[in-house]
Write a protein that binds this DNA or RNA. Structure first.
Lengths: 349, 349
DNA sequence: TTGTAGGCGTTATCAA
DNA sequence: TTGATAACGCCTACAA
């Protein structure tokens, strides 16, 4: 990519990088021809094509995307708004998204606001100003203004990790089914009294859905779910630790606990360990598995594994389809897989 | 941001989004004036300014970044090349970087190649074509072509998580000191025979540095480090698990193990647990702490905490300084903090 | 304080 | 197959 000799012999001034015109001059053709040589090589004669390409190579020519975007009215750039980046499974998703897009010549413009700025309309505006051709949004709980702006600017978009949305296409997990698998497993082992450690549902549509799916399954199986047995908390190890302590302190009798994600599970298991409660002998623990590290927590636990990467890939494909003008396919709903690592019924008594 | 009514009454055609000229027409001024109203409001009279701003608001005007970039020769965009995204502390760093840049009006263009594409020159080229004003590179082990291209295009850049580089400014941790703190701690407890679980050093300059710092400290303290007691492996829970099993299988006598990161530590602790080896009673474990979850692993372990976020922030500030034209400050070297959670000497015998 | 006009580097249309 | 030439939408002297 860099010219073998950064400066062209003859042009002493090492000023700005080479433009189409420079290449054209060196190759002895017009700028238009150079443009074609680069984008539609088959339109040129063999001779000129090689001559132009050589000149471009020699000058270390790199196209000016701004000029191209201005002329073509598209930037080959996709924006993504992804809150709560660190300490979550989002990065895995984003990498998959980026890889899928990159393979098609698109680059990702990332907006990774911390929680407070999560719904700031300025985020999307910044992306729009950069001329993104499409946008990936995490979660379905976006303010209406976002969709309005997207529509006003005719930008295709996709919601990641969202099951349904009246607003547009989305790709998500079948979380209700995932929760049902977890609960069914516990029920089959004979557990009747369940506890739940949920992620904070305020302003978090995914956590809400996860909790709803769980409670619905509990009801279907006729299990007991005491209101006191549901603890809602921030996601993280420490919060999970504290939440489990809270649950224990309430002394609500439960024989199994379902954690809404593996961060909470990790913390909860630590708390149980510290309290001297054996898992799964005295207490069963099951968990959603977003980050795939739950498998290595100390006591074996049962999880439903969500295919995080695939969300990113599917979202990428969907976006590319929209950009190509294809009709968007039906919203994919990715299945979760139950992984059983400990099978124990409730402790007697 | 979206216009209250997406379409302007009168202009039935809901074609492309509004341009400067459209706003100018609606406000009854020239395009130049609109441009000024948006970028240098203090140059206008109170009256026209409000009139123009109202018109812009009414049309839901969003600047065309491509045109702006073309005219200004800068895009207010920074590229980042960040390999191995998932399952690492990079996302935390990137979020901090993004936040710092966003506060100054810059947006991040992300390139998150999987390992194979990690050093593909096309990555940087794609960024350059998008017109990034500067570039953030993860790690110092970049191919020379990268620096050549950066220089040829006069793009400021910064190396993240790199201590020194002849190529340019970088911000990193004092890893040697971090390793020294760990080893000194173990030595002070009376450990003499140490084992090391290292991340793979092939093609990974950070892992290399970490291992070097460790072995140097071991030598300084006169401890024993049998070649067989150093196991090098991929980073991750499962690899850590396997690596510890390997170490145990070799039967090299060690009383303490240092893990090069907390993924490895987590896996190693699981392996020790499964092997029925008590930590720290029978075996002490110490670890670098990149991801801040080691604290919640089952047995308490001693760690050195590396300020990951700060790397991102510092890098952002450095980049902004370069973009401003300021002389870059000296390469910051962030200190690590020892966190002692278990203090036990070697098991007798 | 405001308008005018040239230029930024590509792409695309239309002739040649 | 190639060369002019006109957009693309914005910024910024320079002039008024």
């Amino acid at each position: 990519m860099p010219p073998s000799s950064p400066d062209v012999p003859g042009s002493t001034e090492a000023s700005r990088s080479a433009s189409l015109a420079d290449v054209a001059a060196l190759a002895g053709v017009s700028a238009g021809t150079v443009s074609r040589a680069l984008s539609r090589p088959d339109m040129l004669s063999e001779a000129t094509r090689t001559r132009v390409l050589a000149a471009a190579e020699r000058l270390g020519y790199v196209a000016n995307g701004a000029a191209r975007a201005l002329a073509m009215r598209r930037s080959f750039t996709v924006g993504a708004i992804v809150p709560r980046f660190g300490r979550s499974s989002f990065p895995t998703m984003v990498q998959a998204l980026e890889a899928t897009l990159a393979a098609a010549g698109y680059t990702l413009l990332l907006s990774a606001p911390e929680r407070a700025r999560g719904h700031d309309p300025a985020l999307l505006r910044a992306l729009l100003e950069r001329g993104v051709d499409a946008v990936a949004l995490l979660g379905a709980d976006q303010p209406p203004a976002v969709f309005a702006a997207l529509a006003a600017h005719r930008r295709p978009f996709v919601l990641l990790w969202a099951e349904h949305s009246a607003q547009g296409p989305c790709v998500g997990f079948d979380e209700a089914d995932a929760g049902a698998q977890l609960v069914a497993h516990l029920a089959s082992l004979g557990h009747r009294r369940i506890g739940i450690l949920s992620g904070s549902t305020v302003d978090n549509e995914r956590a809400q859905r996860r909790l709803r799916g769980l409670t619905a399954a509990v009801a279907r199986h006729g299990l007991q779910l005491h209101p006191e047995a549901v603890v809602e908390t921030e996601t993280g190890f420490a919060p999970g630790f504290a939440a489990m302590q809270t649950l224990l302190a309430r002394r609500t009798p439960v024989t199994a606990v379902v954690c809404a994600n593996d961060y909470l599970a990790a913390g909860a298991l630590s708390a149980l360990d510290q309290a001297g409660i054996a898992v799964p002998a005295q207490m069963s623990v099951a968990s959603f598995n977003d980050n795939d590290f739950a498998a290595f927590l100390h006591p074996p636990l049962t999880t439903v594994r969500l295919p995080i990467q695939e969300i990113g890939e599917q979202a990428g494909r969907l976006l590319l389809a929209s950009l190509r003008g294809d009709a968007p396919p039906a919203n994919p709903l990715l299945p979760a897989t139950l992984v059983v690592r400990a099978s124990t019924g409730p402790a007697p008594g």
